[in-house]
């Protein structure tokens, strides 16, 4: 498609500069896309493996916890679980992967874990709580990996669209327009030339 511009030398120069820029941008973005995909594939494999082990461990923890709390009444449960003293927070630090800011979480724990009395709670509860406590870093790691995958997916999609837009729309359009302007300018030069020749002929004829 030819862009709507005036066919003159100024425009031609401008378009040539734009074409140069577009080609440079296209090459850079293509490199970025390839690098992103490389990192992405590595991350996906890591995520898949981590997910498999995490699922298994988490399921064990859940089942153990359910068994431990099975014989507890509603009141006992409330008295044990409603007033926790522990507080777990995460602080996010951002790592830059090809201009995508991927969070890295750091876990911070405060307060006591076992806050309930010995009479109402069973030893199984202690064990299952310990397991829940041990799996927290894994959970946070999993959340981190999931987020990284989503952020990278979006960035790859965006970059791919840009690369395609440059490759199949922008650069061909600019090339077509440049060709059109050069042809128009040549045509104008030729017509001017022939006009001069005709006038010369007329003068000589007199």
């Amino acid at each position: 498609m030819i862009l709507t511009v005036n066919p003159n030398r100024m425009e031609l120069l401008k378009l040539k500069r734009r074409l140069e820029l577009a080609i440079r941008g296209y090459k850079l973005l293509k490199d970025k896309r390839d690098a992103l995909i490389q990192i992405f594939v590595k991350l996906v494999q890591e995520n898949k493996e981590a997910r498999e082990t995490f699922d298994k461990k988490m399921r064990e923890c859940m089942n153990e916890f359910l068994l431990a709390t099975l014989y507890m009444g509603e009141n006992d449960q409330n008295s044990i679980f409603l007033f926790p003293q522990r507080k777990t927070t995460v602080t996010a630090e951002y790592q830059n992967i090809m201009s995508v800011k991927v969070p890295r979480f750091r876990v911070k724990e405060e307060g006591k874990l076992y806050t309930y009395g010995m009479i109402k709670a069973s030893p199984e509860l202690d064990n299952s709580l310990k397991k829940y406590h041990e799996i927290v870093p894994l959970m946070v790691k999993m959340a981190e990996l999931d987020k990284a995958i989503i952020l990278l997916t979006e960035e790859i999609e965006k970059t791919r669209r840009r690369v395609n837009a440059l490759e199949y729309v922008m650069i061909p359009n600019l090339k077509d327009t440049i060709k059109f302007i050069t042809m128009k300018l040549d045509e104008m030069a030729r017509s001017a030339n022939s006009a001069i020749m005709r006038i010369k002929e007329m003068i000589r004829g007199e």
Partner: peptide, 8 residues
Amino acid sequence: IGFSLIGF
């Protein structure tokens, strides 16, 4: 409910 004691 178990995660309440963990601090979530």
